[in-house]
């Protein structure tokens, strides 16, 4: 079976020679949940943002859903094809504040997939029901709590029926008591077999839902292990140091 994402020797440098991505090779199989961990500035967000073309890279190969992406910057059409099949959820939710919850979700199905409004709205309500927030359909993002907004963002990403979901620290901007409602929604998606790449600091989520943990530091992949090994008996000194740090919090 072909991997959903395959990256080979991905490298990206910023000015002053700082490497955001340093020779990264990974693959994500269909139905797999890959958890990406690491200290801030380690390149985790940059990595998953290359998967849907929000970030470019300088060298290496990337293949997403069978579509090859090169390091040149002129691949607008390929990137758009990928984006129609890959959903993304951001740390700051990034809902459209001037549109209602329902409009936030139906925008892409109507504008990108050219669906009829009725059909798009019906499907959006089904997704909102799955997320447990169907009663907010007519409200605006600012009227919802952070946890509810993030669940709307997940529903919005699901509206295009993606084959891969990318999560960029989805719970980092939430109040602690709101974290679980979002993690539960993500857990249910994983149970339904959704392929996911999740950048997070949530150890319990990584342990229970993750199939693989990718640990990064300074733009490099330090270690790729199953959660059992990573959290109990990490291979690398750097990984163990990081785990001790987050346990103290």
């Amino acid at each position: 079976m072909l991997p959903i994402v395959k990256a080979t020797n991905l490298t990206k440098s910023y000015a002053k020679g700082i490497r955001a991505l340093d020779n990264i090779s990974i693959s994500v199989d269909p139905g797999e949940v890959l958890v990406v961990m690491g200290p801030s500035g380690s390149g985790k967000s940059t990595l998953i943002r290359t998967f849907n073309g929000l970030e470019t890279f300088d060298s290496g190969q990337l293949n997403v859903l069978g579509i090859p992406l090169g390091s040149n910057h002129n691949e607008e059409r390929k990137i758009r094809r990928i984006r129609k099949r890959v959903g993304m959820v951001f740390q700051q939710f990034n809902l459209f504040p001037h549109l209602s919850i329902l409009e936030n979700i139906t925008l892409a199905p109507i504008k990108v997939q050219k669906k009829k409004r009725d059909e798009a709205e019906h499907e959006a309500l089904v997704l909102l029901t799955q997320m447990g927030i169907e009663s907010h359909a007519q409200k605006y993002p600012s009227q919802l709590s952070g946890g509810e907004q993030q669940r709307v963002a997940i529903a919005r990403a699901l509206a295009l029926k993606p084959e891969l979901l990318l999560f960029d620290e989805p719970t980092s901007a939430l109040d602690p008591e709101r974290v679980n409602e979002v993690l539960d929604a993500m857990r249910r998606l994983a149970e339904q077999g959704m392929s996911m790449v999740v950048v997070t600091h949530e150890v319990n989520f990584a342990k229970e839902v993750g199939d693989k943990v990718l640990f990064m530091d300074s733009g490099k992949v330090i270690e790729t292990s199953t959660p059992d090994i990573f959290f109990l008996d990490a291979k690398h000194q750097r990984s163990r140091k990081f785990l001790n740090q987050i346990k103290k919090k």
Binding site: L54, V86, F96
Partner: peptide
């Protein structure tokens, strides 16, 4: 983040510009 958000949904820049 609004640009990244609509781009991630597969909207082109022109549509995103006037709707978002």
């Amino acid at each position: 983040g609004q640009w990244e958000s609509f781009r991630s949904l597969g909207l082109n820049d022109f549509t995103g510009l006037y709707t978002i």
